[in-house]
Design a protein around this nucleic acid. Sequence first.
DNA 1: GTTGTGACATCGC
DNA 2: CGCGATGCCACAA
Length: 117
Amino acid sequence: MSLFTLPPDAAVFYQTVYQLVARIPVGKVATYGQLARLLAYPPGIDPRVYDILSARWVGGAMANCPDNLPWHRVVNSQGRVSPRPGAQKQQELLVADGVKFKPNGAIDLRVYGWDGQ
DNA sequence: GTTGTGACATCGC
DNA sequence: CGCGATGCCACAA
């Protein structure tokens, strides 16, 4: 772990993130920032700080991902899998979900982006 | 007590 | 479209 900041109530925050990730339908992908926005502002947190770090907090949650979630459906704002050991595997899983990568290795979020329903 | 280092996003060139 | 810089913070060595 050891990402950037952990929210005051990291345990709760993580749980919420996992719930959202679990809701991402097959063939769709969500971005870290998107998930962060879907979450409510934790009470007592400087909104300014939240806006800047929330996405990383989501990343932190994914780093400790319970591996029973569709973690591979979470990508960065550019529609690409974040560089890390296992990125290769992540792409394979996405392709298996029916997500297609563009020549440059990015996913077209206009098509595969999760609307958060 | 210090230092290095991260599953990000956004803006500028 | 892509590389680089910036914002900001806790935790492991």
